Amino acid sequence: MINWKVRFKNRNWVIAFISQLMIVAEMVLSGLNTMGLIHFQLTDAIQSSILTFVNAVFVLLSMLGIVQDPTTKGYRDSDQALKYKEPK
């Protein structure tokens, strides 16, 4: 069973979860529009604006060190990774 409390404490998981929710929402809206159940369509201008905003947020989070490698503790590379000459 999934422990949701633990997952929501992990910033990496939350960021991935929110981005995936946005993708699912776009797919559902597009599908409902295709079936004629709703009359809402994401125009290229709206999609471009949303993509620009999301990219800006992720760039800012990356610059602040919030989006990190989930395989290491903290925000820096592990001692083992720092000694690599080439990826394993």
Rank of each mutant, 00 (worst) to 15 (best):
Gly31Asp: 09
Leu51Gln: 05
Leu64Pro: 00
Thr34Tyr: 13
Ile46Leu: 15
Asn3Gln: 08
Leu37Ala: 10
Ile18Thr: 11
Ala56Trp: 01
Val67Leu: 09
Met27Trp: 11
Asn10Gly: 01
Gly74Trp: 03
Ser30Phe: 12
Leu61Gln: 01
Phe17Glu: 15
Leu29Trp: 02
Asn3Val: 07
Ser62Glu: 12
Lys85Asp: 10
Ile15Glu: 00
Asn12Ala: 07
Asp44Tyr: 01
Arg76Cys: 09
Arg7Asn: 09
Ser19Pro: 00
Asn33Ile: 01
Val59Asp: 13
Ile18Lys: 03
Ile50Met: 15
Tyr75Leu: 02
Leu61Arg: 00
Ile2Phe: 06
Ser78Lys: 06
Ser49Gln: 14
Trp4Cys: 01
Lys83Cys: 05
Gln20Asp: 11
Gly65Arg: 03
Ala45Met: 13
Thr72Pro: 00
Ala81Ile: 06
Lys73Leu: 14
Val57Phe: 03
Lys9Met: 14
Val24Cys: 01
Arg76Leu: 14
Ala16Lys: 06
Asp79Asn: 10
Gly31Met: 07
Val24His: 05
Met63Thr: 02
Met27Ser: 14
Arg11Phe: 11
Phe53Gln: 04
Leu21Asp: 09
Ser19Glu: 13
Phe40Asp: 07
Leu29Ala: 09
Phe53Lys: 03
Ile18Arg: 04
Val14Cys: 09
Thr43Pro: 01
Val14Met: 12
Phe58Leu: 15
Phe58Pro: 00
Ile2Val: 13
Gln68Asp: 09
Phe8Asp: 04
Ser30Glu: 13
Asp79Phe: 10
Gly36Ile: 10
Leu42Arg: 04
Leu21Ile: 05
His39Gln: 14
Leu37Arg: 06
Phe40His: 10
Tyr75Val: 04
Val6Ser: 09
Val6Cys: 02
Met63Gln: 11
Asn33Glu: 12
Ile23Leu: 12
Gln47Tyr: 01
Ile23Phe: 09
Ser78Trp: 07
Val67Phe: 00
Gly31Tyr: 11
Leu29Asp: 02
Phe53Pro: 00
Val57Gln: 06
Val6Ile: 13
Gly65Asn: 06
Leu51Tyr: 01
Thr71Arg: 12
Ser30Val: 03
Asn10Asp: 15
Met35Lys: 02
Ile50Glu: 10
Ser78Asn: 07
Thr71Pro: 00
Thr71Gln: 08
Gly74Gln: 03
Ser62Cys: 08
Leu60Tyr: 03
Gln80Phe: 12
Glu26Tyr: 15
Thr71Ile: 04
Ala45Trp: 04
Asn55Asp: 12
Thr52Gln: 14
Ser19Gly: 07
Met22His: 05
Lys5Tyr: 08
Arg76Ala: 14
Met22Gly: 10
Met35Leu: 15
Asn12Thr: 12
Val28Phe: 06
Phe17Gly: 01
Lys73Trp: 06
Glu26Arg: 14
Met22Gln: 13
Phe17Tyr: 15
Leu37Ile: 15
Val59Phe: 07
Arg7Asp: 05
Ser30Cys: 08
Val14Ile: 15
Asn55Gly: 05
Ile23Val: 13
His39Met: 10
